[in-house]
Amino acid sequence: MATTHGTTSGKAGYHHGDLRNALIAAAVDLATEGGPEKVVLREAARRVGVSPTAAYRHFEGQGDLLHAVKIHGQLALVEWMERASAAVPRCEDPGDAAESRIAAMGRGYVGFALAEPGLYRAAFCNPKLPGGSDEDEEWAGLTPAGPGPEFGAFVLLTAALDALVATGRMPESNRAAAEVAAWSAVHGLSMLILDGPLKRLPLEERDAVIDRTVATITAGLTAPRSAVHGSGPDAPAGAPAE
Score class of each variant (00 low, 15 high):
97 A>F: 02
219 A>N: 07
153 A>V: 14
116 E>M: 02
204 E>A: 15
208 A>D: 08
181 A>G: 12
112 F>V: 00
174 N>D: 03
122 A>M: 03
137 E>T: 09
116 E>A: 02
202 P>H: 09
125 C>N: 06
218 T>H: 12
203 L>I: 15
161 L>A: 04
156 L>V: 13
114 L>A: 00
179 E>K: 14
92 E>A: 11
82 E>N: 10
91 C>R: 10
185 A>K: 07
87 A>H: 10
136 D>F: 09
121 R>D: 05
228 V>N: 00
176 A>H: 15
147 P>K: 14
179 E>M: 12
123 A>T: 05
208 A>M: 09
218 T>W: 03
183 W>H: 09
104 A>M: 01
190 S>F: 00
174 N>Y: 03
162 D>F: 08
204 E>K: 13
131 G>I: 08
121 R>M: 01
152 G>R: 00
100 S>W: 09
156 L>G: 04
132 G>V: 10
205 E>N: 09
155 V>N: 07
82 E>L: 14
155 V>D: 14
124 F>N: 02
218 T>R: 08
155 V>L: 07
101 R>V: 13
87 A>W: 04
128 K>G: 15
206 R>K: 06
175 R>S: 01
222 T>L: 09
109 Y>L: 07
218 T>F: 00
139 W>I: 09
146 G>N: 13
102 I>N: 09
212 R>P: 05
221 L>Y: 06
148 G>M: 14
140 A>C: 06
141 G>Q: 08
145 A>L: 11
123 A>F: 11
158 T>N: 05
205 E>V: 09
143 T>I: 14
159 A>L: 12
224 P>L: 06
184 S>H: 11
126 N>G: 12
117 P>R: 06
134 D>H: 07
214 V>M: 04
178 A>G: 14
129 L>S: 13
224 P>D: 07
227 A>W: 08
106 G>S: 01
225 R>W: 09
192 L>T: 11
108 G>S: 03
83 R>A: 11
104 A>S: 03
221 L>R: 11
129 L>V: 15
175 R>A: 10
125 C>R: 01
186 V>A: 04
81 M>D: 01
161 L>W: 05
205 E>R: 11
226 S>T: 05
119 L>N: 13
228 V>L: 14
215 A>W: 03
223 A>G: 01
146 G>T: 07
136 D>R: 13
133 S>T: 13
142 L>P: 02
203 L>R: 15
226 S>Q: 08
195 D>V: 00
118 G>W: 03
113 A>Q: 03
157 L>E: 11
131 G>H: 06
189 L>T: 01
118 G>R: 01
109 Y>N: 12
90 R>Q: 12
116 E>F: 00
90 R>P: 01
194 L>N: 08
225 R>I: 12
126 N>W: 05
201 L>M: 05
124 F>S: 03
159 A>K: 10
139 W>F: 13
102 I>K: 05
225 R>V: 10
179 E>S: 13
139 W>M: 15
209 V>Y: 02
84 A>E: 12
183 W>T: 08
217 I>Q: 03
159 A>F: 01
125 C>H: 04
115 A>F: 03
184 S>A: 06
204 E>N: 10
189 L>H: 03
98 A>S: 15
